[in-house]
Amino acid sequence: MLINADFSQRAALAFEDYQWVDSPQKGVERVMLDRVGAEKARATSIVRYAPDSYFPHHLHPGGEEILVLSGTFSADDTDYPIGWYIRNPPTSGHQPYSVKGATIFVKLWQMSTDEHQHVAIDTTDDSNWQLQGDRQICPLFSDDDEQVSLQRLTASQPLFMTEVVGGVELLVIAGELIENKQTYKSGSWLRFPIGTLPQISAGLKGVTVYLKTGYLAQIKHTDIAALLNE
């Protein structure tokens, strides 16, 4: 399966254009943002758990990155309420579920094999935020391959002033983002290829975004081909 699989092209999905599809597990639905492969895929998705839904215990050979967007997501008897950011490194496993329901942003099979540390950060905790230049930033992860953060912009503030090295992906967490008179509400997702300077700015009430940079330069086409053959 290929969805927004040409990483040399801009890709976007506005919140109002979501198309929910059933997962193999009852009570769990997803919106596929980008995908290369079948059920074992390099994938970026919005996943919605109905109350008392779950997945059986399983492994993530390529790692898993999660941001809880609503409700409470749980795994192996640990609860992660709205705002928690989690990184489960390659070869890790868990049994995910939600007692009262949850919506999460998920990225699968997109981590370096050199990554070994589990990460869990409460982005609703003000102590995890810091002022950097003209904006508030909550650092989530950084290495030689990628940089991940949440960023808060004030009204009409540009997100980028210079070209972003290695491409960029973002998810609108709160507020609105404006690109060429197009408004992207909370839940909207955008991806820009290497070598571009996205002309995007916060809406009139500001915006909070999940931001990932650098990672597109690390995509290995041999890994993608392997996923397509599974």
Rank of each mutant, 00 (worst) to 15 (best):
H60F: 07
L190N: 02
P61L: 02
Y18C: 02
T113M: 15
S112K: 09
V165M: 12
S8Q: 14
D223H: 15
P158K: 00
S23G: 03
I121D: 06
S201R: 11
G133F: 09
T72E: 14
I66P: 04
L227Q: 08
H221C: 05
A11W: 12
L59N: 14
V36R: 03
M32K: 12
P56M: 05
V148A: 03
M111A: 14
R87P: 00
D145H: 14
S92D: 09
V21P: 04
P81I: 12
D122S: 14
V207K: 03
L211C: 07
T124I: 11
I219L: 15
A155G: 08
S74E: 14
K220V: 09
S92K: 01
G195D: 07
S156E: 14
G167L: 03
P24L: 01
A174R: 08
P198S: 06
K107D: 01
T44R: 05
I82Y: 06
Q132Y: 05
I3G: 00
Q117V: 15
Q182K: 05
G187I: 12
T123P: 00
Y184L: 15
V172K: 02
T123D: 01
A226I: 04
I66Y: 08
S23N: 03
Q151H: 06
T196M: 08
I86E: 10
Q218N: 11
W84N: 04
I86S: 08
Q136M: 14
L227E: 10
R191P: 10
A174E: 14
G63P: 00
Q136N: 11
G206F: 01
I224Y: 10
L227S: 09
Q157R: 08
E169M: 01
L140N: 06
H94R: 09
K100Q: 13
S201V: 03
Y80H: 08
P198D: 09
P51I: 12
N229F: 07
R191A: 09
A41S: 13
A75V: 13
S98Y: 03
V47R: 02
L211H: 01
Q157M: 13
G167H: 00
M1I: 11
S8L: 12
V207S: 00
N180K: 02
I3P: 06
P158Y: 02
S112A: 13
D52P: 00
K181E: 14
H118N: 09
E39Y: 10
N180P: 05
T208I: 10
C138H: 01
K181Q: 14
L131K: 13
S45N: 07
Y215K: 10
T72V: 15
S8F: 06
A225H: 13
H58Q: 04
L228A: 13
I66L: 10
A226R: 06
G71R: 05
H57P: 12
P56T: 07
R135A: 12
V36Q: 03
I194V: 15
F55E: 00
E39Q: 13
A155R: 05
R191F: 11
E115L: 15
I224D: 15
A120M: 10
L150H: 07
V99C: 11
V99K: 15
T72N: 07
I137M: 10
S186T: 13
D143P: 03
T103L: 07
L190K: 00
N128D: 07
S127Q: 10
Q19D: 13
W129A: 02
V36M: 00
D79N: 12
L13C: 11
S45L: 12
Q110K: 01
I104E: 04
L216Y: 07
G83Y: 03
D17A: 14
V31I: 12
A11Q: 07
